[in-house]
Design a protein around this nucleic acid. Structure first.
Length: 499
DNA sequence: ATCGGCTCGCGCAA
DNA sequence: TGCGCGAAGCCGAT
């Protein structure tokens, strides 16, 4: 047992991004360093992998990368499985011949994977995993921390700003933006390596994992990693939520999506992003959600293409324009990638027990919603009618069909989609429940802090009151399908998703 | 097409 | 204590 601080004095992973989940010490007679990849499912711009590589070199031990996929979690379906499995195939390819043991494990039955992490940890000198603030991951980490006896590190690769860099919840984008404008320059200096495995040699690769582990938890076969429906058929997951066509998962594919966005869409992002027919959005959110693409890579690629340097930065006291010193469409995108993405992580990180609860809404919003909770609803739909897009609102039905079929809703219509549900349910709590359920079940970027930002924004989070006071809404911002139709040209969208 | 007012809380200047 | 300001709105007036 050795004091880890001595070893890791020269770590390039910022200390704000590394947390320990237990009091364990490094066991220098372990057989390997274990990186348990959970939310940063990529090989580049990954502080967790980088940290594991550092440990491996410092201790002179081989590196084992475990990427696992359970079947027993809520909403497990062909859709999410295919996306994650394709990501595993990409990682397997990227890591082959790089001197690490990559072990892709896929459960065949609920609970089958239980004990795998523990068994590997028993052979490990130190265990590193990804820090992530939502869905079941915090619970899974806590449960693993109770069992793992060696040093167990959580590494935050989520955003450009470490989650632990903030001390409080930001209740408006404006106040968070002002904080970013004062503080982000420091964090921009500490970016993850584009290829954590590149410089220096890793200690001799382990031939194989211990046989008793391999026999119980074998690596997933290649056909399963294609994510083909036929390969998924035997798994006990929801086959009714199908694979999204034309959007395979994985780091490699995510990089292609990013390149296409830069080439074809970024320059008109500010003017066109609210128009569903203009196809100007990045489409990156599923890749960001599963960690197939890191926010740092997105930023780096844009910064390089736009000639960004620290000298561009100009604090604007929280105002949007001009902070990055870049073209307006680029600023508009960075506002999404950084301000809006990371304010969501900020909230989930600081309110781990409340981020999905009605009570986490601002008080003015709860007050006004509660006052109008008993208002008569002009129309009520059952969950099933909504899920199956059988409402009387053509715009809403189209958005819902996009969600069910393609695993996403266009950014702009997503707001309208949520506002309608508030009108069609008996209470705002019920609305919240329906929105979370539909989004978690069908959206490839669901269960992400940002998905919850979007859903809770519908009910007033990060927003302000608006007049006039209306039934059901109270002073929550109102949006109507009629006005949206007038404002936005979405003929093609309505045809494409019109049944 | 564009504008102000609507309404609340926050941060900052005074 | 006052003032300006705010993810994407709405409505009515010009």
């Amino acid at each position: 047992m050795t004091n880890p601080d001595v070893f890791m004095r020269n770590s390039k992973v910022p200390h704000l991004r590394v947390n320990t989940a237990n009091d364990g010490l490094v066991r220098s007679d372990g057989s390997f360093v274990l990186y348990w990849m959970t939310s940063a499912r990529r090989t580049s711009y990954n502080f967790g992998l980088q940290r594991a590589v550092e440990w491996s070199r410092v201790l002179g031990l081989p590196l084992v990368v475990l990427e696992a996929l359970r079947v027993g979690y809520k909403y497990a379906s062909d859709r999410f499985h295919a996306f994650v499995l394709q990501g595993m195939a990409s990682n397997q390819q990227s890591l082959s011949g790089r001197g690490v043991v990559y072990h892709p494990y896929v459960e065949r039955a609920p609970g089958e994977g239980k004990g795998l992490v523990m068994s590997l940890a028993n052979h490990a000198a130190v265990v590193i995993t990804d820090d992530y603030p939502s869905f079941f991951l915090p619970k899974m980490i806590a449960s693993a921390a109770r069992q793992i006896s060696v040093r167990f590190e959580l590494v935050d690769s989520n955003g450009l700003v470490p989650m632990r860099a903030t001390q409080q919840v930001f209740t408006t984008a404006f106040s968070f933006r002002a904080w970013l404008q004062k503080n982000i320059a420091t964090h921009l200096k500490n970016r993850p390596s584009a290829d954590p495995l590149q410089d220096g040699v890793l200690p001799a690769k382990l031939g194989l994992l211990p046989p008793e582990i391999l026999s119980k938890w074998p690596a997933a076969p290649p056909d399963l990693l294609t994510g083909a429906s036929s390969a998924l058929a035997p798994l006990p997951i929801d086959h009714g939520v199908g694979v999204v066509s034309g959007m395979p998962g994985g780091e490699r594919e995510g990089r292609n999506v990013l390149a296409r966005f830069l080439r074809d869409k970024l320059s008109r992002y500010d003017s066109d992003r609210n128009d569903p027919d203009a196809h100007a959005t990045s489409g990156l959110s599923p890749y960001l959600h599963f960690g197939h693409v890191g926010a740092h890579e997105v930023f780096d690629v844009i910064a390089r293409a736009e000639g960004f340097s620290d000298a561009n930065l100009q604090a604007r006291g929280g105002k949007r324009e001009g902070f990055w010193g870049l073209r307006p469409p680029v600023e508009a995108f960075l506002e999404q990638l950084i301000t809006w993405r990371e304010v969501g992580f900020n909230l989930c990180f600081h309110l781990p027990h409340d981020y999905m609860r009605y009570e986490s809404l601002p008080l003015w919003a709860q007050r006004t919603l509660d006052e109008h909770a008993a208002d008569r609803r002009a129309k009520l739909y059952t969950r099933q009618e909504m899920e199956q897009a059988r409402t009387g609102d053509a715009v809403w039905n189209a958005a819902q069909r996009e969600l069910v079929r393609d695993g996403r809703i266009h950014n702009y219509l997503r707001m309208l989609w949520g506002k309608r549900v508030l009108e069609w349910t008996l209470t705002p709590r019920e609305a919240l429940d329906v929105l979370i359920e539909l989004n978690d079940k069908y959206a490839l970027d669901g269960r992400d802090p940002n998905s919850y930002s979007g859903i809770f924004w519908i009910l007033g989070r990060y927003d302000r009151p608006w007049a006039p006071v209306r039934p059901v809404y109270g002073s929550i911002r109102y949006m109507s399908s009629t006005n949206t139709l007038k404002k936005i040209d979405m003929k093609k969208y309505l045809v494409k998703y019109g049944r």
